[in-house]
């Protein structure tokens, strides 16, 4: 991508974001309801984790780790559901109805226009709730977090969000090969829920899956662990982003070759 295309892409994205905010301001009552529903989903997600934690009385499962996990998970999923997943959920339909043609002829990267142009600003309410949870947890448990831990958490939460979005996109891109694969979005959303539980509760094999192939732990429990105990090398975070994005780009290239434009 050259500098001009990058500039145009950023300008288009800013306009899309402005358009999304204007839409939510037009339909205010719906926007408020969706905001509350998003926070409600967060609460419904938190409760099973907190209920489970109340029954664990060993040192290995620290309650502060569980609460921090929930806070990080709220922020990362809020970002995903604002900027990425609305487009991924529409991708199957775009392939089936030939709407991808419209993205192909635009002077911006096709993947960007096909997937990232649907934005739901109300989902950012979850990021605010997640940040509040982190702040309250830090002061309640008197964690005394250092800048190193905060930096490690932010870096891994960012890398994890991109990696999980890439994993979700890999599943969605199956639409190039399989007809009507739209429910894989529900599968990706359901699997994502594993990230809000402390990692040590899962069996060993599952823990490996959750930080590699289907990286749900990277959007919740793993960054929260880094906040408390920053041990994993930060140099690995860019590698995670690079590998996951490369795989998605590869699948996208193969899929695009197969696309035969349903509308033309």
């Amino acid at each position: 991508m050259n500098a001009r295309t990058a500039r145009v892409t950023i300008l288009v994205w800013l306009n899309l974001f402005r358009q999304a905010v204007m839409r939510d301001l037009q339909f205010r009552s719906q926007a408020w309801l969706h905001l509350f529903a998003g926070i409600g989903e967060l609460i419904v997600g938190i409760l099973p984790v907190l209920i489970l934690t109340t029954y664990v009385r060993t040192d290995s499962a620290r309650p502060e780790a569980a609460v921090l996990t929930v806070g990080v998970f709220a922020i990362t999923t809020g970002l995903m559901d604002c900027f990425v997943t609305p487009g991924l959920r529409r991708f199957d339909s775009a392939i089936r109805k030939g709407e991808l043609d419209l993205a192909l002829v635009r002077p911006v990267p096709t993947f960007f226009y096909a997937v990232l142009r649907w934005i739901q600003p109300t989902e950012l309410g979850r990021c605010v709730s997640g940040t509040a949870i982190l702040v309250v947890a830090a002061s309640t448990f008197d964690l005394g977090l250092g800048p190193e831990g905060v930096l490690a958490m932010i870096a891994w939460a960012f890398a994890g969000t991109i990696a999980y979005c890439a994993f979700w996109a890999d599943l969605t891109l199956l639409a190039f090969w399989v007809r009507s694969i739209e429910p894989v979005n529900d599968l990706a959303a359901a699997w994502r829920g594993a990230g809000q539980y402390p990692r040590q509760f899962f069996p060993r094999t599952m823990q490996i899956v959750l930080v590699s192939f289907a990286p749900a732990a990277l959007i919740g429990s793993f960054p929260a662990e880094q906040l408390l105990d920053p041990t994993a090398g930060l140099v690995l975070a860019p590698a995670v982003v690079l590998v996951s994005c490369s795989l998605t780009a590869l699948i996208w290239q193969f899929g695009l070759v197969r696309y035969n434009s349903a509308s033309s």
């Binding site: 099973p48 489970l52 029954y55 664990v56 009385r57 060993t58 290995s60 499962a61 359901a190 699997w191 829920g193 594993a194 539980y197 040590q200 509760f201 899962f202 069996p203 599952m206």
Partner: peptide, 17 residues
């Protein structure tokens, strides 16, 4: 499946539901 794994794991870690 996630609930099953996590609850069994928690019980193996000493949880007493």
């Amino acid at each position: 499946l996630i609930s099953l794994l996590v609850w069994r794991g928690a019980m193996a870690n000493g949880a007493e539901p």
